[in-house]
Each structure stands twice: as C-alpha cells, then as structure tokens.
C-alpha cells in the first residue's frame, strides 16, 4: 500500500557509524555498534530486531535522551543537516518538542499520574502553541477521537484507562505538535489488531498529508512490512539487513531476518510445533552491510552458519 516517497531532497535524519555503550557497575554493553541509516522526508522507516539488540537505545540517541552511564562513543547524528550531538540546551528543547516527537516503549507508564489526560494534552497546546484553553480543549478532544477514545475520557486519570488506552493517549500527544520526525518505539503492544489498524491508518494518513517522517520500532513484522517504506533488521547492536520493506519480506537474505519472518505461528492450517532460533546460534563479529541487490543491503554471513527458525 505504501508508495515510495520522493527522494530528491536531503534526508531528514542521517545517522552515521553510531556507537553507544552502557558502562554499568557489572557489565559494559555496546548496545549500538557502528550503525548507519538515513530517513528521507516523508519516509516511514521500520526497525525490527532481537529483544535487547539496541533499538530503543538507538532511538534515544537520536533524541539525545541517553544519560550516564550511557555514552555515545562514536558516529554522528544529523537532523535536517544539523549536528544533533552539538546542540545546546535550548536547541535541544526545540528539537524534542517541536521537531522530533517520540512515543516511548514505556508509554503506558509515562503519563503524569496526578493529572487528567485532558489537562496533559491541553498543557502541550497552551505551552507550545500558546493556544487559549478553550481552543486547546477542542484540539485535545479531536486528538482523542483520532486514536479512537471517547472524548469524555479527557477527564480520566491515567490509572483509570486500560493499558492500550494509555498507549493511545501517548500516541495522540506525540502527533499533537505535528513533528517533522515521529519516533514510535513499540507503540501498539497493548492494542487489539482492529484498533491498531485504524490508528496506524490514521497516522499514515496524517503522515502523507503533513509529509513528516517516521522511525517505527516494532516486533510485529507483518505490521511493519505493511506500513514501512524501508526497514532495517538489527541484531546484537548491528544492522544485519536493510531494504525496501516489501523486498525484505519477499526476499529476506540474512538468516536472522528469515527467522523473524518465518518463525511466527500461522492463523490457519495445522498447529505444528515451532522453534525459535536454533539453540545456541549466535552471530558474532557481524561485518558491515554490502549491497547485494539495488537498495538491498545485507551483512555477509560466514559460510557454514546453519540457523533457521521455523517449523521444527
């Protein structure tokens, strides 16, 4: 369903050779390891991968949200051509509110527990757009409808909403100020597929009409393939494959990508036992990506590596 965005202008986001390390008390983790990607204007870029492989860390780095003991140990991040790593506090504030918005993976617990969701949304408009309260209320109600919540719920406190409702409120807040880049880290884990489809269709609609870009992180490969223009698969801090989404689905080249695509249980047919990645298989020393087909980049796999998830 996704048509390719025009690529004549410079990318909105350009990440080059990014490395991030956590220096914990007991372990040092290189969570992101020499990762490079670009997101074009109006492009939806999907990021999938193993649990714990560094997706959230990469997203947080783009927003400059990493704190001690995390450190960006290498690489550059450019947003609209500006060096994000060199921004001062004031510029960062603008970046985070007006230019890049993020739905955190912890969205369900990221709302202020002592304020109604209505007041929280109204606050965004009164502080950042200097709207009058009454106008802001109207806008807040419209936003809730966008994410399929009855505007009557503006008076609810976060704990009075279900997990998925809180997630939807946070999505609404992220699009409130019409950012140029929207980062969504697992935004639909608590949504049923009907509501998920409707909301993602709304976001895609907004995205097309306003022309913003999206960095979309999810474990739901089907959703990602349906929605993204291009996507990347990450493993142990490294990218192992990037390609146009449809292409990656039709011709996954890296064995880890194949495992992700083939290992989910079907909705029809016999219920055969499945296995995840074959026990003990780990990829280490993942090499840089090579372009194996136009626009389709893959990390070469050492010959003799046998791993395939899927039917046991």
């Amino acid at each position: 369903m996704s048509t390719h965005p025009s690529r004549d202008d410079a990318p909105v986001l350009e990440v080059t050779d990014l490395s991030v390390e956590y220096h914990g008390e007991h372990r040092t983790v290189r969570a992101v390891d020499r990762v490079s990607f670009t997101i074009g204007r109006g492009e939806i870029f999907g990021l999938a991968g193993e649990s714990g492989c560094g997706k959230s860390t990469a997203a947080n780095a783009v927003m400059r949200l990493l704190r001690e003991p995390a450190a960006i140990t290498g690489g550059t991040i450019r947003f609209q051509g500006r060096d994000v790593l060199a921004l001062d506090a004031e510029e960062l504030r603008t970046l985070r509110w007006r230019e890049v918005a993020m739905v955190f993976q912890s969205a369900m617990s990221s709302l202020n527990p002592v304020m109604t969701v209505g007041d929280q949304i109204v606050d965004i408009f009164t502080t950042h757009e200097r709207l009058r309260k009454s106008v802001a209320r109207e806008r807040a109600a419209e936003l809730l409808e966008l994410v399929r919540i009855d505007p009557g719920r503006l008076r609810s406190y976060p704990h009075q909403l279900s997990g998925g409702m809180r997630q939807r409120v946070v999505i609404a807040m992220a699009v409130a100020l019409r950012p140029q880049l929207l980062i969504m880290d697992e935004p639909t884990t608590a949504l049923d597929v009907v509501v998920q489809q409707e909301i993602m269709a709304q976001i895609a609609e907004l995205q097309r009409s306003l022309g913003f870009s999206v960095l979309f992180i999810t474990h739901d490969m089907s959703l990602m393939i349906e929605l993204s223009h291009r996507m990347a698969v990450m493993y142990a801090g490294r990218f192992v494959e990037t390609a146009p989404a449809r292409d990656l689905f039709a011709h996954p080249r890296h064995p880890y990508t194949r495992a992700l695509i083939n290992a989910f249980p079907p909705l029809s047919g016999p219920n055969t036992p499945l296995v995840g990645l074959r026990e003990g298989v780990r990829f280490t020393d993942i090499p840089d990506l090579r372009e194996e087909a136009p626009g389709h980049w893959v990390a070469p796999v050492p010959v003799g590596t046998v791993i395939d998830g899927g039917r046991a």
Partner: peptide, 16 residues
C-alpha cells in the same frame, strides 16, 4: 500480555 515486547524467536521460546 507477557510476550508483547518479544521478537518472534524469543516469543516462540516463551510460548513453548
């Protein structure tokens, strides 16, 4: 929703 944030490979492990 115990497995909503797990990649398919790990998710299959938990389901098993």
């Amino acid at each position: 929703e115990p497995t909503s944030m797990l990649d398919v490979s790990v998710r299959i492990g938990v389901l098993n």
